[in-house]
Design a binder for these strands. Structure first.
Lengths: 333, 333
DNA sequence: TAGCACAATGTAATCGTTTGCGCAAGTGGT
DNA sequence: ACCACTTGCGCAAACGATTACATTGTGCTA
């Protein structure tokens, strides 16, 4: 209540708001002494700018939004950390939103960010953005996708790994270890990351002249429960695979739980390889062989890309940045 | 860039801004037909409110800030999830900030939220808030602490477990299992949660008439590295403890790593009990005996408390809400 | 001594919404 | 025919900052 405004300072000092504003922002043309008087009174009276007013006037919020499906997944948490680092350095604020894997929430978050006049957004989409993203296009606000490419948008900016190549490579690794009965639990294939991984897997098998068995290839949900359920399905088969590739960490955790629950051994009975199953504790057993996205770097690059667009340091052209995944070894294969 | 404003709609329809605003907000006194014409044109022309202007005028952003030390710690991630659920239901937006365990960043985040006119904030403080929190007091913006109580503030609102009681209880559990040589690695004791847990531990020991051994009690940092280092110190002692209590999940992971690295067995050589070492994957070995804070519930309650204060449903009085921790069993003890 | 450059400051418009107050026209009861 | 309401709408002032465009005063030059 009664927060101090520039107007108050101006009146108290018998100067105009112009002078106060100029003094506070150091934007020249104010006598040194006046400037100091303003500064001092501002300090004493605990003046703080009202960002709303400022942003409204300047049409610039210096705020970047990021929407992720699951903030408690360390993969996304690390992306956020990366983005936040850049934001902090460059004087931006990062607004984090969680879509809870729900396209409707994703849409809602994007809408809210748009209304709040975010300067740009980073989206790890789960599919629900078409309509709102057009709003960003119209408003000419930079949007960068991470992890997933949008299912529809025509041209877009992207920071991610090459999921096709990664899946191909991971499958090759499994093959090289001598496995030939290989299956996969994919994420929802309407999400590009899941689909590309699926395709990489299929093509790697076929290039290795290994037939793929449809029973061993299942479409799941990027959740622990789904991993468990699908793996249970696979394990109940007459003919079981010798190795399974999991499209994501949660799927892997669920799947492994299912395997153990059936009293089976990893990797003797079923071997496991996964994506992004990186272990922050160092205590997960088995240690999962996993191909990981460089999460923090993805966050950093995406954020940098937004800021570049904002400062005009980047041409308006569509840009896809592909980063290299890294392998973490383990005893699950 | 040519974003549609109410003014544009008004001109196009030959009505006043008042009418447009009323129609869009459904705040009465507009003919049904006019209202529909406005709505339709708004839709067609992709009108969106400018939250900045709206909030500025209303002096209300419907935005709640939350500042946590480490977003990639699942404990905090779950708090955020809880808070976000409530916010979403009540039409608020949650702004998540990460302080990275750094008091300066914490201060910065609080400052930014204040300037952005957040309607309220939730803080899991690591100690750097004194100055800025006064700003909130002056502006009469509700602040709710979680996890940690502020080191200085006189009266404050809090949602947390009773850390003293919890530590006392956990220690009792360890004692009841027959351990008498018990040590603890605490967090930074200038943080209240760490200090209270330390005191609960000490008093539980003394009430059980077990002498405490200063060599086994160490002050660490709530990080994996610190857990590792301090545990290494403890293990290098002539006389080792039979059980160690870890004040936090990260400390526990680091400590366990150290124990294994020394070729020791858990719980035979050293037993382990911890706080908040809850395992999302179900694959962490050993399964850690842990007393956990109900993270999502903390987030929900804190958020609810803010909103209650905002809507005047709560008296201005200081409120401390203590929730019950829950035990997860394991084989580490 | 007029003219000029430049420093220091002020006036007022602007960003996009909301809303108190006022006004005109319509409705219905007596 | 009059009064009391209600309905539908508009004017213009906020909210708090920034800034283009004056305006004033000062010292210096020609």
């Amino acid at each position: 209540m009664g927060n101090v405004r520039q107007k108050d300072i101006a009146e108290r000092l018998g100067v105009s708001m112009t002078t106060v504003s100029r003094a506070l922002n150091g934007s020249g043309r104010v006598k040194k002494e006046t400037c100091q008087r303003v500064m001092q009174l501002a300090q004493e009276s605990h003046y703080m700018v009202n960002s709303l007013a400022r942003s409204l006037r300047l049409s610039d919020t210096r705020t970047i939004g990021i929407v992720v499906p699951d903030i408690s997944n360390s993969f996304f948490a690390n992306i956020i950390k990366g983005a936040q680092g850049i934001c902090h350095d460059r004087g931006y604020m990062l607004m984090v939103c969680n879509s809870d894997e729900n396209p409707l929430y994703e849409e809602g978050a994007l809408m809210a960010l748009l209304e709040k006049q975010a300067s740009g957004v980073i989206i790890a989409s789960v599919g629900g953005s078409r309509e709102t993203v057009n709003g960003y296009r119209r408003a000419n606000i930079p949007v960068v996708y991470i992890d997933n490419v949008p299912s529809d948008a025509a041209d877009y900016d992207l920071v991610s790994i090459d999921n096709y190549k990664a899946a191909y490579a991971l499958t090759q690794i499994v093959v090289k270890r001598g496995y030939r009965k290989i299956g996969m639990i994919t994420g929802p294939r309407k999400q590009s990351s899941a689909r590309m991984r699926y395709e990489g897997f299929i093509n790697a098998l076929s290039d290795a002249e290994i037939p793929n068995n449809a029973d061993w290839i299942r479409e799941g949900e990027f959740t622990l429960e789904s991993g468990y359920a699908e793996m249970m399905g696979v394990l109940s088969l007459e003919r079981r695979p010798a190795a399974m590739i999991l499209s994501n960490n949660k799927l892997a955790y669920g799947a492994i739980r299912a395997i153990y629950e059936q009293g089976l051994k990893i990797p003797e009975d079923v071997a496991i390889a996964s994506f992004d199953a990186i272990d922050g504790t160092g205590l997960v057993r088995p240690q999962i062989v996993s191909l990981n996205q460089p999460a923090e770097e993805i966050g950093r690059r995406a954020c940098q890309m937004i800021i570049d667009k904002l400062t005009g340091e980047s041409s308006g052209q569509e840009r896809h940045v592909f980063l290299e995944p890294f392998l973490s070894e383990g005893d699950s294969l």
